[in-house]
């Protein structure tokens, strides 16, 4: 339904005053997203997982037309979204909705909850009369489990969890075909998080909405998503079914991410498999971006960039050494 191919976005850096005096022409650029490809099926939840600076939010902004890419294409239902006619564009905006991380900023403080929920209906001329729209808003409120009394309140009167429910309700009011949720629970308490994630699952089950869930937490993605796409420094390193990716990671970065994720078990121990820290995206390592930190890196990783390839059916990895490093474990020899 959505197909992202070779997406690339570099943000140019400002030249500093000194550099200008010295007559330096180029200041370089931040490689936010580099050659990213993945696709979303109808009705599935896809997890976009990565640390800060991995390019997951920029990818979301590119898909929702908040940014233009330097190159690459995004096809939504067979049409390139960067070349949509004005009519198609309006249609696209209706069917692709975005929910942000911070529920305190994403609702207009001067709108009551009812006004906030009615606005997208008005914008897209859904529901002809006020009563019709009121009925639709009531339906949405029921779906997300916020009491009707909240309709006449302003966002400041609601808790973070309730606001995030409203933000999701607003996005779902138009029954979009694709919802992109950027860290929708990372600012909420853990007792509330599970309810919001389950709401996402319920809303998906009720319609044919596909969801892209952007999160830094592979544990959350694991329990909520059908497939997971792992990003590192603006590139996709591994892409597979959630079950497969977690039980059988084939990229050293995914493996390290899983080993570093704390479990709820007092006897389990996190381990650190990568050395150092994520570098600067303005000057990413050549060839494989993980090679300076990777325990398995060898000469080839320093000179040749690995491409995303299908190692097992439906399991894509960008690593020269996946088979060598991980297959012995697979077969148990």
């Amino acid at each position: 339904m959505l197909e992202v191919t070779g997406l690339k976005k570099h943000f140019p850096l400002e030249r500093s005053f000194l550099d200008r005096l010295r007559g330096k022409k180029e200041a370089g650029s931040v490689h936010a997203v580099d050659n990213v490809s993945f696709w979303v099926r109808r009705g599935e939840i896809l997890g976009l997982v990565g640390e800060s600076g991995s390019g997951k939010t920029t990818t979301a902004r590119l898909i929702t037309l908040l940014e233009r890419p330097d190159s690459g294409s995004v096809q939504f239902e067979g049409k390139d979204i960067y070349g949509l006619s004005p009519d198609d564009l309006k249609n696209f905006r209706r069917h692709v909705q975005l929910v942000f991380q911070n529920p305190y900023d994403s609702l207009d403080p001067k709108f009551t909850i009812f006004e906030s929920l009615e606005e997208p209906l008005l914008t897209h001329s859904v529901g002809r009369t006020k009563d019709e729209r009121r009925e639709m808003v009531h339906q949405t409120m029921k779906k997300v489990g916020v009491p009707m009394e909240a309709l006449n309140l302003y966002p400041s009167k609601l808790s973070g969890g309730q606001r995030q429910r409203i933000a999701l309700a607003r996005a779902f009011a138009l029954e979009p075909k694709l919802l992109i949720a950027d860290e929708p629970v990372s600012m909420l308490d853990s007792s509330i998080r599970a309810s919001i994630l389950n709401m996402l699952l319920d809303l998906r089950a009720q319609g044919a909405t596909s969801v892209i869930l952007i999160t830094h937490d592979i544990a959350t993605a694991r329990h909520v998503c059908d497939r997971i796409c792992v990003m590192y420094m603006g590139e996709v390193v591994e892409f597979a079914m959630a079950d497969e990716l977690v039980t059988n990671p084939l990229h050293p970065y995914t493996h390290a991410l899983l080993s570093a994720t704390p479990r709820l078990d007092p006897d389990a121990r996190v381990t650190v498999e990568l050395t150092g820290e994520i570098g600067s995206a303005a000057d990413p390592p050549a060839a494989c971006r993980l090679h300076p930190r990777c325990p398995h890196a060898y000469e080839r990783c320093r000179v040749e960039e690995p491409v995303l390839r299908e190692i097992l059916p439906g399991h894509y990895v960008a690593c020269h050494r996946s088979e060598e490093v991980f297959f012995p474990k697979l077969t148990g020899t």
């Binding site: 808790s159 969890g161 309730q162 308490d189 853990s190 007792s191 509330i192 998080r193 599970a194 309810s195 919001i196 994630l197 389950n198 937490d217 592979i218 544990a219 959350t220 694991r222 329990h223 909520v224 959630a242 079950d243 977690v246 039980t247 899983l258 994720t261 704390p262 479990r263 709820l264 078990d265």
Partner: peptide, 25 residues
Amino acid sequence: MKLLGAFPGARLEKRITLVGIPGEP
């Protein structure tokens, strides 16, 4: 008990259904 059930970190090997705590803190 509820808080532990709402936490995604538990066992990554198996997919589990997270259960939230109703109401507000």
